[in-house]
């Protein structure tokens, strides 16, 4: 596989971004403080954005960085700070080793199956609907497809977002008699 000619710079970029993603992922898992987890998440997002660019999806990379890393993670941090839950969490798996083991096994199985899928070639014969990727600039093609074939879903996303915002506002409205956060985090059960 390596024998096929790959332009070296692309390979370096790929490897670097994979490393960033890996660090970010593992960091997120093992972070004792939620804030660190959020930062590691940003790191991963950035790695993924780089891969998007490599694959010719510049617009998405931009959106990823601006919307995702910018807004979503900031929201996370905002909530963490608001609730004051930024306290040390014991991430040891002392309590429920059984469940962790099961989780491990489950994930391993999924990975195995995905590898098989990833390495196999899948042709289902369904013809392309959205249009050629290479016909013009990425954003142009993407915009043409979104605003023509997928116009209805696009409108729906607008409605979705409105609902989400309204929901969030109602959910987090201050209700009377709210329980104050307890002095220390309860021991992991």
């Amino acid at each position: 596989m390596i024998a096929t000619v790959i332009s070296v710079p692309q390979l370096i970029v790929f490897i670097v971004s994979v490393v960033i993603i890996a660090i970010g992922g593992v960091g997120l898992l093992s972070a004792r403080y939620p804030v660190h987890a959020a930062l590691f998440l940003v790191m991963t997002l950035f790695g993924v954005a780089v891969l998007f660019i490599e694959e010719g999806a510049e617009f998405l990379a931009a959106v990823q960085v601006v919307v995702y890393a910018g807004a979503v993670v900031v929201l996370f941090l905002f909530v963490i700070m608001l609730l004051g839950v930024d306290r040390e969490e014991i991430t040891s798996f002392a309590g429920d080793t059984v469940r962790v083991a099961l989780a491990g096994v489950g994930v391993a199985l999924i990975l195995a199956e995905l590898f098989i899928v990833a390495t196999g070639a899948w042709v289902t014969g369904a013809h392309a609907v959205a249009g050629k990727l290479s016909a013009g600039s990425n954003i142009g093609v993407l915009a043409r497809s979104v605003f023509t074939t997928y116009l209805l879903p696009f409108e729906l996303t607008a409605a979705l977002l409105v609902i989400a915002v309204v929901g969030a506002v109602i959910l987090s409205r201050r209700m009377s008699g709210v329980a104050q956060p307890r002095a220390h985090e309860s021991r992991e059960v």
Binding site: G106, V107, I110, E113
Partner: peptide, 16 residues
């Protein structure tokens, strides 16, 4: 978490 585990189980079975 136990619900999620069941979900994972489900995914595994479907993929298989």
């Amino acid at each position: 978490r136990s619900y999620l585990l069941i979900m994972v189980g489900g995914i595994v079975v479907m993929l298989a």
